[in-house]
Simulated scan of single mutants.
Amino acid sequence: MTITERLNQDMKTAMKARDKKTLSTIRMVKASMQNEAIKLGKDTLSEEEELTVLSREVKQRKDSLHEFQEAGRDDLVEGLNNELEILQVYMPKQLSEEELGQIVQETIQEVGASDKSDMGKVMSAIMPKVKGKADGSQVNKLVLKHLS
């Protein structure tokens, strides 16, 4: 079942249950996916493109959450936490620190990287492998750690 199919099914469930928070979050994500499809000139998105949009939505909310926490806006923090919980359901299982470390080490060997100047090559090789399964900043930190 694709992400869009799951979103449609869960949207119907949220409507029946009168769950406004879930419904509005799903509608927002569906709108983002539809906008992406229009931007790409397609009728439907591939599974990978859907995951890209979903990852972008999660990242935006995490960034906003950080900003709101620093500003002391607890009222907005709670709403964003709810949205993040809902979106995490559709994301693939996240990689553990050990699994990610192993992928980083393997990729460094594949690329033949030896120091920080090879950071770009390593990151461009790793990110497609862990798309949606790991946060980019976490990958970046691990790559830096292994290249130092």
Results as ranks from 00 to 15, higher is better:
residue 74 D to N: 09
residue 75 D to R: 10
residue 12 K to Q: 13
residue 84 L to N: 02
residue 60 Q to E: 13
residue 56 R to K: 15
residue 51 L to C: 10
residue 58 V to G: 01
residue 64 S to Y: 04
residue 71 A to V: 01
residue 78 E to F: 04
residue 68 F to V: 00
residue 98 E to A: 11
residue 22 T to Y: 04
residue 87 L to P: 00
residue 30 K to W: 04
residue 26 I to P: 06
residue 104 V to K: 03
residue 100 L to A: 10
residue 83 E to S: 11
residue 55 S to Q: 11
residue 107 T to M: 08
residue 29 V to Q: 08
residue 35 N to W: 04
residue 102 Q to Y: 04
residue 99 E to L: 08
residue 43 D to R: 12
residue 17 A to W: 04
residue 21 K to I: 10
residue 74 D to F: 08
residue 19 D to M: 05
residue 40 L to N: 07
residue 40 L to A: 11
residue 76 L to I: 01
residue 15 M to K: 15
residue 58 V to T: 07
residue 72 G to L: 05
residue 71 A to G: 01
residue 120 G to K: 13
residue 96 S to F: 09
residue 69 Q to Y: 05
residue 93 K to C: 03
residue 9 Q to E: 13
residue 25 T to S: 05
residue 20 K to A: 10
residue 95 L to H: 06
residue 56 R to Y: 07
residue 87 L to T: 06
residue 117 S to C: 02
residue 55 S to H: 03
residue 121 K to H: 08
residue 26 I to H: 04
residue 36 E to P: 00
residue 42 K to W: 05
residue 28 M to G: 06
residue 28 M to L: 09
residue 115 D to T: 00
residue 104 V to F: 01
residue 58 V to C: 01
residue 97 E to F: 14
residue 64 S to E: 06
residue 56 R to M: 10
residue 107 T to N: 09
residue 37 A to D: 02
residue 73 R to N: 13
residue 80 L to N: 00
residue 59 K to V: 11
residue 67 E to S: 13
residue 38 I to V: 14
residue 66 H to N: 12
residue 75 D to I: 05
residue 35 N to R: 12
residue 19 D to W: 02
residue 119 M to E: 08
residue 52 T to C: 04
residue 110 E to Q: 15
residue 72 G to R: 07
residue 31 A to S: 14
residue 39 K to P: 00
residue 47 E to H: 12
residue 41 G to I: 02
residue 111 V to A: 10
residue 73 R to T: 01
residue 83 E to K: 06
residue 30 K to F: 03
residue 21 K to R: 10
residue 106 E to C: 09
residue 88 Q to F: 04
residue 69 Q to K: 15
residue 53 V to D: 00
residue 32 S to I: 01
residue 101 G to R: 11
residue 39 K to Y: 14
residue 103 I to H: 07
residue 66 H to F: 11
residue 30 K to Q: 15
residue 68 F to I: 00
residue 68 F to S: 05
residue 94 Q to Y: 02
residue 81 N to E: 15
residue 39 K to I: 08
residue 21 K to D: 15
residue 54 L to T: 01
residue 38 I to T: 15
residue 54 L to D: 02
residue 92 P to S: 05
residue 93 K to L: 13
residue 115 D to F: 01
residue 18 R to G: 02
residue 27 R to I: 13
residue 87 L to Y: 03
residue 80 L to I: 00
residue 96 S to N: 10
residue 37 A to V: 12
residue 80 L to P: 07
residue 95 L to M: 14
residue 122 V to M: 11
residue 43 D to S: 12
residue 84 L to S: 02
residue 69 Q to E: 13
residue 98 E to Y: 11
residue 62 K to E: 14
residue 22 T to R: 13
residue 8 N to W: 08
residue 76 L to Y: 06
residue 8 N to S: 10
residue 41 G to Y: 09
residue 53 V to I: 12
